[in-house]
Design a protein around this nucleic acid. Sequence first.
RNA 1: GCCCCCAUCGUCUAGUGGCCUAGGACACCGCCCUUUCACGGCGGCGGCGGGGAUUCGAAUUCCCCUGGGGGUACCA
Length: 541
Amino acid sequence: MTESYATATPAGGPIPGPVRVRFAPSPTGTLHVGSARTALYNYLFARHLGGSYILRVEDTDVARSSLEHEQSILVDLAWLGLQWDEGPDIGGDHGPYRQSERSEAGIYRLAAERLLNESKAYYCFCSQERLEQLKTETLARGDMPKYDRCCAAIPPDEAAARVAAGEPATIRFRVPDTAIEVTDIIHGRTDFSSEVIGDFIILRSDGGVSYNFAVVVDDIAMEITHVIRGEDHLTNAARQVLVFQAFGHEPPAWAHHSLIMGPDGGKLSKRHGATSVGEFRRMGYLPSAIINYLALLSWSPGGEREKLAKEEMVAEFELQRVSKSPAIFDIQKLNWLNGLHIRDLAREEFHLALAPFIGDAGSGVTPGREGAKASEATPGRDAAAALGVTPGQLAVAEAAVQTSLVTLADANGQILEFFTATPLAVSVDAASPDEESVAAELGEEGSAAVLEMASARLEELPAAAELTAGTVDEAVDKARALIKQWKKSCKEADIPPKRLFRTLRIALTGRGSGPELPFMLAGLGRDSIRERLEAAKPYAK
RNA sequence: GCCCCCAUCGUCUAGUGGCCUAGGACACCGCCCUUUCACGGCGGCGGCGGGGAUUCGAAUUCCCCUGGGGGUACCA
């Protein structure tokens, strides 16, 4: 009921047919989180209304565009789960979906000629030097730079003759003297005067189409009903409304969302840290967390929920609930959400998501949250083998760290430590101040008794070879039960529970902190535990 | 310079004239749980940029200022 915009033009007239939106990236770089958010809003809007979400590649800037960039953008988009209904790779009824191909097909040339014939456009023979000078002069005078219509009055016959003779020319749009109204779903109505808009170029002298023209021609051809994009395009909308009118076509409904800023309030850029989706992927962020976070930057669902799955966002997304003000990218909140999404993963999903980050991918390094080297993943490698443990052991370690991760990349260090934490004997000899104080704790009264007690019942724990991914819970439960019994025995022997836990942890790992003890006991394996316990005995009291 | 947009805790936001001594979340700080860390629970800190106007009553409407952002290309 609040979705009347779906079936109505800004003016109130009905838009025939279903909702069609497009995400139109320019393949001049990798997918930026800001663009990803635009894609996300388009996706959510279309899915919410059962419409179509189209991917159109705006590669008319030949010098800066590349197929490699296009590829990586498609990969990142798909990785985020924002699958499109029509696009350059899968086709559709309104193709081609690459502007370079549309240009080759003569689509823009033809459209420009139509305007030429109707006198809504004209050839311009001004040199770039003259244009440059004109701009400088206008700026010096304190006015808005704007083409002076030097060539607007050239008779069409004469112009055509000059073009035929080979004189380089651009085609300019003849901006009518009129008030322009842009009605935006997010912003409401904005008025522009065509006075501030100069006759802009629609076809370059090299035959290439320019942005403001290509967009309109394509949006008409592709039957786009809603244009959802960044606010940096708001003033472009004024120009584009004019072109729509020149073609006698009703403009689509507009929705210009705010831009993402860096922590210092400036436009989000590399100096603020990671900005591309690919970087976040390599740092160990989950796609579900990224789109959740991106959606929340500007949009909020009705209630007070923060963690949302894609399906929930689709069900509730509404453009009128998108905020008008710019949003600052806050990595802390992304971190928080990423942790929540990681904890939501089923064991198997988690294992799969983790694979590229375990073993070789980061061996030797424990990437910190901040300065994480965006190490390239090596998914082909078998993670357990790389660590020298059984798949079952790895499964236990994964289960142990799942609740404490911020990013997937953090797992490598934690899992590595799970298996390779320096046992006490070595630790004491190394005697770094930190380890020394931990080792000293082993001298506490009762530790010897604890070690004896533990050694005596190790058979109740699974051996490393017996563990499988499917028996993780079983193994951990066994360890829990055993600990419970040890606890009981300690009580009888008048040994405080704390002594039990501390002694075992230190004997097993040489550290004062780490994963929960039941997981350590289950994952390390019977033999390894026995060895470490024995090694600790000489130091216990 | 000119045009356009925006303005609630440090950050993301709820809030569309009285329900607001402004709600939630991240971060931060305490406490609890706990062998540690994390998770979880409880509590705290903290905000309507400034000035006018309309109104019985304004975070909510209007104007001005200030601040921030965007645009001003033969880039998109």
